[in-house]
Design a protein around this nucleic acid. Structure first.
Length: 830
RNA sequence: GGGUCGGUGGCGGAAUGGCAGACGCAGCGGACUUAAAAUCCGCCGGGGCAACCCUUGUGGGUUCGAAUCCCACCCGACCUACCA
């Protein structure tokens, strides 16, 4: 056995021993509290990068900590294995996506094992396995039966590079680009499958209060769902067509001097007069073209054209012109607005530009009624004017009063509007779970019967460089007999959004590939119910913030849908969430091949070992903050491990009697060490519990430095010393699992350090016997007192006033006031 | 435009109303070595010989006392956006 710390030797050794002893195998145990620790599963790109290490090793440390604290911890891992990369590789290299994917998974399993994490590998789930996607299809079928899955012809976002439609959540940024590849999306009119997530809009919003998630994720989801209260008011065109609008300001209805429709609005053609026809057509075309590129920045100059048509304002019977403009979106509200230029900035700008009437219906804060320089949009200050029966009504509370009046007069009603759209799940790609639907010329849309699941992906698909899904051209796949009439029919060739597969993986882990090879039924249970009842829901979820309005929204919806289907009996899938930050390259920029700032974790592990890499990543700073990789700073953590190794193994080799005969035990030193130890235990316990790994490691370093300081003193090999060394090893176990187990065994233990209980810090033993009390004069430190804790304020004051420095600074003046904070300070004010 | 988070030594960061800079990196000095590396010990915000003074983006405020709380502003990161 080598006496030097050699991670290359001990790390593979312990990884093998842990695997052989099935140290991390999980079984349900009703006698222990359960803890389901989940971390976002990787996409099998083929290489584990530093970001994976940054996401996974701290969550592993937290899981290990829970385990040492008596929890029965479930910490599974798997692969989100469908997706376009595999398909692109297939087109490029002519290999089937499954082959590419499974080869990558195999490689990544090896890389993941090098982290030394405590994953329950026996629960691994791979979403592209037919025994997995059989259930993804089963859920689709359940949603279809429940009316939560439907097919709709509508304008949708399409990525021309990925050759597929996208959900609204997967279109990002100002330029509306594809979340996956960055290409700006285009609009297409297509018939697509959607999930009715909007049914749960209120619940998704309101239940955010019940989960312990980071505030910024809650804010992002709140904004994304975008609930706003107001009124729906029905205007009429002169031809008599109803023209419904949504407004958050029904109190400004009397100020509506024109209306604006989105260029795509279905009534545009009906209201456009012959005279304006050419202009309107031209504008519509321009808007359509623009939306394909992009409608541009928000501060863009507003444009629009008059249709020649008029509408009747229901509250005052006024005839107002109808315009079309691209600042009104078909995808929000009804695609039509009443324009109140006096009290809406956008309408104001539009009215100014086109010379439309601006009529003030709310007074200014000072009672002003004159012409406006800019839109006045206060909901709190002012009163209504030029508003018929409401003149004189204070604007605060006016929305409710007007809404009531609208309802009483059957002109409109209170309404809630959401920004959230239904989740478009159709993807025109091959490498995904096929949507289990058959189109029959006689029977129409026919869902694949439960017992016929899964609808398998063909393994002889032909990949064309056109980027189109091979399923479309695969006769054997596409042609099918109708399950109802037995006649010739065709399968749906679109597959499901991969976010569908990752919406339920936390359940798949419970019993991976449940009912393997069995036929499914409508009333099946997708996992072992008893195991699910024990483990669910997830107690702690960790992962990146980039999924705030995608995966994290979808999986919440999914769980609510499952609850309504009677499959789960809770409302929220993940009770706590923590978002780690992003690890950056040494230059402080996002790691990327093109920047050449990528740190390859394999190489760093080769050089320093997994424990050092784990510890370094956790030592950089707060986990949710991320930060740049520092080539040199990692040495500090590595050095720390060497120093721990040295002090522990040297001590073990000493084999000297408990205390050398010529040295008397020094109770003061022993007490000091004991105090330091218990302070460290309390601090490290609190820190790890709250994911503050950086300060936890700093505390371990401090304790180790202290051991160095006292190692030549008479405490060495005393019971106090041995306890300190033992607890240091225990506290290192979650973050540095390999070196901890090695040192633990070298201390003579035979059972793994990872089966031990976390040390308990005793606040009594951690307490200082003497406290430095700062003595200030006018808030400036002038002297210090060493006092016993709990010394009464009066004593502190009189002691402080006797200090020579204090006497000198007072210079004969008498204190005006003395502030005493026991155990902290005395502040003398003159 | 709106929202969220942040701004502390040469660097990563600690301290969330009570001694600013824990811990680590880099740097400096010393021990060991023929020498270097490694290791160990010490120093390490700025000014000043010193007593002391200055110092947490800027300016105000609250307080006996502010990096921490409040107001205004500047800068940065992320999210979001003609949302009616």
């Amino acid at each position: 056995m080598s006496n030097k710390y050699n991670p290359a030797e001990i790390e593979p050794k312990w990884q093998q021993i842990w695997a052989e002893q099935q140290l991390y195998k999980t079984v349900e145990d009703p006698d222990r509290p359960k803890w389901y620790a989940l971390t976002m599963l990787p996409y099998p790109s083929g290489d584990l990068h530093t970001g994976h290490w940054y996401a996974y090793t701290p969550s592993d440390a937290a899981a290990r900590f829970r385990r040492m604290n008596g929890y029965n911890v479930f910490f599974p891992i798997g692969f989100d294995a469908f997706g376009l990369n595999a398909e692109n590789a297939a087109i490029k290299h002519g290999i089937h996506p499954a082959k590419w994917t499974y080869a990558n998974i195999e490689r990544m399993r090896g890389q993941l094992r090098r982290m030394g994490a405590m994953w329950s590998w026996e629960h691994e789930a791979v979403s592209c396995d037919p025994e997995y996607y059989k259930w993804s299809q089963w859920f689709f079928r359940k949603f279809y039966d429940a009316g939560l899955a439907y097919r709709e012809y509508a304008p949708v976002d399409f990525c021309p590079t990925c050759n597929t439609t996208l959900a609204r959540e997967q279109v990002w940024g100002d330029d509306r680009h594809c979340e996956r590849c960055g290409t700006p999306v285009i609009k297409k009119n297509l018939e697509q499958w959607k999930f009715r997530i909007t049914k749960y809009a209120d619940e998704l919003l309101d239940m955010l209060d019940q989960i312990d998630w980071p505030e910024r994720v809650k804010v992002m989801q709140t904004n994304w769902i975008g609930r706003s209260y107001g009124a729906a008011v029905v205007f009429r065109t002169e031809q008599g067509d109803a023209l419904e609008i949504f407004t958050t300001r029904p109190d400004t209805l009397w100020g509506a001097t024109f209306m604006v429709l989105a260029p795509e609005h279905p009534l545009v053609d009906a209201i456009t007069t012959e005279e304006h026809c050419a202009e309107v057509e031209a504008y519509k075309e321009q808007a359509a073209r623009l939306s394909e590129i992009q409608r541009g920045a928000a501060d863009k100059e507003k444009t629009g054209v008059f249709t020649g048509g008029y509408a009747i304002n229901p509250v005052n019977g006024e005839r107002i012109p109808i315009w079309i403009a691209d600042y009104v979106m078909m995808g929000y509200g009804t695609g039509a607005i009443m324009a109140v230029p006096a009290h809406d900035a956008r309408d104001f700008a539009f009215a100014k530009k086109y010379g439309l009437e601006i009529r003030r219906v709310i007074t200014g804060p000072d009672g002003a009624t004159g012409p406006l320089e800019e839109a006045y949009d206060s909901k709190d200050t002012g009163e209504m004017i030029n508003s018929g029966p409401f003149d004189g009504t204070p604007v605060a509370g006016a929305v409710a009063k007007v809404t009531e009046w609208l309802e009483a007069n059957e002109l409109g009603r209170g309404a809630v509007n959401y920004r959230l759209r239904d989740w478009l799940i159709s993807r025109q790609r091959m490498w995904g779970a096929p949507i289990p639907i058959i189109y029959c010329p006689n029977c129409g849309i026919v869902p694949v019967p439960y017992e016929d699941l899964p609808v398998l992906l063909p393994d002889d698909a032909e990949f064309k460089p056109t980027g189109e899904s091979p399923l479309k051209y695969h006769e054997g796949f596409r042609n099918v007999k109708c399950p109802e009439c037995g006649g010739d029919a065709e399968r749906e060739t679109d597959t499901m959004d991969t976010f569908m597969c990752s919406s339920w993986y936390q359940y798949a882990y419970i019993s991976p590939y449940w009912k393997k090879g069995e036929k499914l039924k409508a009333d099946d249970m997708p996992w072992d119910k008893a195991a699910g009842d024990y483990w669910l829901p997830v107690d702690q979820y960790t992962g990146g913030i980039e999924h705030a309005t995608m995966h994290l929204l979808y999986t919440r919806f999914f769980t609510k849908a499952l609850r309504d289907l009677g499959i789960v009996n809770f409302d929220e899938p993940m009770l706590r969430l923590f978002n780690q930050g992003m690890i950056l390259g040494p230059d402080g920029e996002k790691m990327s091949k093109s920047r050449g700032n990528v740190i390859n974790p394999d190489e760093v592990v080769d050089r320093y070992g997994a424990d050092t890499v784990r510890g370094y990543l956790m030592f950089i700073g707060p986990w949710d903050q991320g930060g740049p990789w520092d080539m040199q700073a990692i040495e500090g953590v590595h050095r720390f491990l060497h120093r721990v190794w040295a002090v522990v193994t040297e001590d073990a080799q000493l084999e000297k009697p408990l205390l050398e005969a010529n040295r008397a035990p020094d109770p003061a030193q022993e007490r000091a060490l004991e105090r330091k130890l218990h302070q460290a235990i309390l601090k490290v316990t609190d820190d790890i519990q709250n994911f503050r790994f950086n300060t936890a490691i700093a505390t371990l370093m401090e304790l180790n430095n202290y051991l160095y300081k006292v190692r030549d003193a008479s405490v060495v090999n005393s019971a106090t010393w041995n306890k300190a060394v033992r607890d240091l090893i225990l506290m290192m176990a979650p973050i540095f699992p390999h070196i901890a187990d090695e040192l633990w065994h070298r201390q003579g233990n035979t059972s793994s350090v990872h089966k031990q209980r976390w040390p308990i810090g005793d606040p009594e033993k951690a307490r200082e016997e003497e406290i430095t009390v700062v003595v200030q004069i006018n808030g400036k430190v002038r002297d210090k007192l060493m006092m016993a804790p709990g010394t009464p304020a009066a004593t502190l004051e009189s002691e402080a006033l006797r200090l020579s420095n204090v006497v000198k600074w007072l210079d004969g003046r008498s204190p005006r006031k003395v502030v005493v904070v026991p155990d902290k300070l005395v502040n003398i004010v003159v």
